[in-house]
Each structure stands twice: as C-alpha cells, then as structure tokens.
Design a binder for these strands. Sequence first.
DNA 1: TCATGCTGCTTGCAATTGCAAACGCACTGG
DNA 2: CCAGTGCGTTTGCAATTGCAAGCAGCATGA
Lengths: 175, 175
Amino acid sequence: MALPKVGSIGEYIREQRTQAKISLRQLAAAAGVSNPYLSQIERGLRKPSAEILNQIAKGLHISAQALYVQAGLIEDREPDSDVLAAIRADNFITERQRQVLIDIYESFRKENRVGAPEEDARTAKNAPPSPEPHESDAGSSPDDESPLPEEFTAALKPYTASSVNGHVTPETKEG
Amino acid sequence: MALPKVGSIGEYIREQRTQAKISLRQLAAAAGVSNPYLSQIERGLRKPSAEILNQIAKGLHISAQALYVQAGLIEDREPDSDVLAAIRADNFITERQRQVLIDIYESFRKENRVGAPEEDARTAKNAPPSPEPHESDAGSSPDDESPLPEEFTAALKPYTASSVNGHVTPETKEG
DNA sequence: TCATGCTGCTTGCAATTGCAAACGCACTGG
DNA sequence: CCAGTGCGTTTGCAATTGCAAGCAGCATGA
C-alpha cells in the first residue's frame, strides 16, 4: 500500500504536461522543482508534498484543486446546489459553524429525499423534491427576532420551539 | 521563507481543536497521526504533508479546503457569495427548512459579531476575528461526553423529522 | 567522427517527515 | 504517600522527500 493513488496523480500530471506540450524539465523549472524529482513523481515513485503539488499545479496552469482531488486529498464535491457553494465560500462564519450549516442543509435534503418509507411518506410529502411551490416570499420575517442560539445543541432546541414552530403553515397539508 | 504560513496553520488547527473541545491525543487518534507529531504541527515545528493535513481536517470535521487555504496551498476562494440569497433561491428544501437555515446562519453571524464593533467584512479573511468559543452552556446535555460534531448531526435528525418538517402544532399560525 | 543540445532516467546524499518511547506536570484516589 | 490516568512535550530513529550530479538515448550539424 505504498503507492495507493500516487500513480494516478503522476499519470495525471504527465498527461497534463504532454497535453501542454512542454518537456519534463520545462515543467520542473516552471514549478520550481528538480527535474529528476518530477520524473519520479510522474512515474509514481515519489509522493509529492502538498507544497510541491501546488507548485506543479501552478507550473501547469491548472487549478491546484484539481490536483488535490486527483491525489485524493480533497473529496470531489458534488455541485449539489448553490447553497453549499455559498456556505463553503462564506467568510463570515467559523469552520465549525460552516460544518454545522452544511450538515443541517444536507440533513434537510436527505430528509426530503426519503426514498419510499411509508412512515416518513407523509413527512416527505411536505417537501417534495420537485416543485414545492414556495410562492410565498416567506420573506423570513425581518422583524421577527428569534432568540437564536450560540451553540449547536443550544441552537437546535430553540428552533423547534420558536422560530420553526411559529412559522408553520398548516394548510400545506393535502386534504 | 522556510516556514511561511506553517505557524498560522498550526495555530489554526489548534484553534479548531480547542474550539471542538477535544484533546490533542484525541484529535491525533481521530486523524490517524501520532500525538507528538500533531503537537509539533500545531506549534509550527513541522510542516505536515497534504495527506496528514487531509486526515487532520477529517478528524476535525472541517473542510480540507479550509486547511489548505490556511496552509497557503490553495488560493483563497472568492470573497463570499451570498449564502442567504442561495438559501432563498434553493428549491430543494421546504419553507420551514429554509427559515431554519436562515435563522441559523444569521445567528452564527450574530454570534461572531460579539467582539466586532463594526462591519469587519474585509478584515475577516477565513477566520472570524474572535469567535470567542464561549458556549453559553445552554444545552449542557446530561451525559454528553462527545463534543464532536457528529453529535450535532445526530441531534439534527429528530428535529428535522418532527419539528421542522411538519410535526408541529399548527395552531401557531402567523397572524 | 566528434560536438552540442535535447529528451527522460538513475544515483548518492542532506534534510525532513512522521512515529514509538519516554518525560514532566497536574489531577484523582486508595 | 505513592499508583494510576490524563494532558502536552521532548527525544532518538527509520523512512521518505527533494535535489545536485551524472548517465543513456536520440537528434542536428561541422
């Protein structure tokens, strides 16, 4: 298990390099690494550090992210929705908060996507994946100050109590 | 320039770890690295490879991307897209779920603003000024000894299923 | 034929990573 | 008072990274 995915990333680099029609030495120079080392990387004999990887990405003029994904260092994130992208790009929240937000959002979607369980069928009915007509702007009542939490566990309780509960529209039930 | 941002990433990791209230050894075990090595990383004495970085990110339950950015291995992402706009535009979730998400996000931002006199948008790069992990201990679960985020996801399920999705007392109509 | 220049590859070697073991410190409790 | 447990840190050491130097093969040209 010495070379798990290392090989694939080496191939990927070589592929990109040949595609760019530049020599190994050229890329090595552009990336600021030695030619022999780059050679070894491309053949999977060495596992480049993140720094080297980054430099190679720069030298290849490709996104470092692509390389990291190839190297298995970053999960290939599915472009589910813009919400996740926005959350991930947001700078106003801490990492932990970000993670919680993502977890919550994903749990929502998972909840809505309930495959076919009869029990949850009705709950799912509330949130059909397709066109749930949220015609109401639902404007998120601007002046409705909810006693929002500061911690997760703390955060969740008040929700069910005030914010969420207080905004229910029972009519959504189908007759 | 031997240690460019290594120090900062170590601090960042330690910050996240203490924020998560887990010990160095715990994180080391969760991340699959040795405790002494993690200690050295946090103090900037060692420059962890991408693989280790990735494992640490997993152990911390934060996005590996954030760590790479902190390590200077990935260019900082675009400033910030509007999370709220994305949430409002999303039609994979119900109105109630949308409301919860918005409330949570805003509460997070409000929470982060505790030590920030004015709009610190630009100053806040990737980590808010001083989030002050001062959990008000509002929850204080009885036998809660898992400060890990998984606790939250677990905590989310019941509440997404029942409270949010429509198992609430509908009498609380908006009026 | 030899010289020059290009391609990529192999070979030692210093520097670094990453770990197992052990250390010092604070706390608990028999 | 000393054993036991937790914390973070320090200390050698094997394994690896990453590089300078050198090697072999294939062109072009005098």
